[in-house]
Design a binder for these strands. Sequence first.
DNA 1: AAGCCCGACAACCGCTCCCTA
DNA 2: CTAGGGAGCGGTTGTCGGGCT
Length: 203
Amino acid sequence: MGRAPCCEKAHTNKGTWTKEEDQRLISYVRTHGEGCWRSLPKAAGLLRCGKSCRLRWINYLRPDLKRGNFTDEEDELIIKLHGSLGNKWSAIATRLPGRTDNEIKNHWNTNIKRKLLGQGLDPRTHRPVHGGSQSSGVSADDDSRRSNLDLDLTISLPSSRSSETICFCYHLGIRSSEACSCRTSSSMRFLSFQHTSSTSTSP
DNA sequence: AAGCCCGACAACCGCTCCCTA
DNA sequence: CTAGGGAGCGGTTGTCGGGCT
C-alpha cells in the first residue's frame, strides 16, 4: 500500500515548460511567496504537479540565480565541499550563492567528474584511482572497503585529549540527525558512524 | 545535406525527512 | 507514540543543440 500520488497525473502537463507557464508561476510566487507547492498549481492555474512547480522555480525562475558558466573558484569550492560532504548537493549549494543543487549536480557529473579523472583522482573518494593495490593480490572488493576505511581515518578523532570529541556531524550540518551518535558517544560508536556513512555511498 | 554522436542541462521519479494532528 | 502528508533531496532520464563524419 503506497502513499497517495502527489498530484493527479492524468490532468498534469509534463516536459518542458512554456513561457506562459513560467509567467504564471513567477507572478503567483511574486504575489503569494514560496511554499504550499501542492496547492500552488491549482491556485496559479497551472496544469502541473506541485513538485514540478517547485523544481522549476528553484532551479530556473528564482530571481537570485546566477546563470552562466562555473568559475574556477566555484569548481574548486565544489570539489572541496564534495570531499567533505559527499553527494549532499543541497548542502553544497548553500555554500554557493546563486547556484542550485541541480545545477551543481549536473556540473559535477558532466565536468568536474571528468576533470578529476583526468587528474587521476577518483571523483567519489578524491583519492588517486590507482592506489597501488595491483601488486597486493587483494580483491577489488577488499580494496574498495579498505579505501573507504582510509577515507574514514583521514577525518578521524584527534589523537590527543581523550575526553574531548569533535563532532563532524556538527560541522557537516547534520547534528540533529540520528546518524550523529555524539549524545551517546564513545569513540567506537563515533567511528562506526563514519564507516557506515562512507560505505553507504558505495554503488 | 543528412545522419549520428555526445555533452549539457532541464525535468521527472521515488525515496526520505520532518512536522503536525 | 504513531501515522499521514507535505516538502526536500538525490539519482536518473529525456531533450536539445552543436560538432563531426
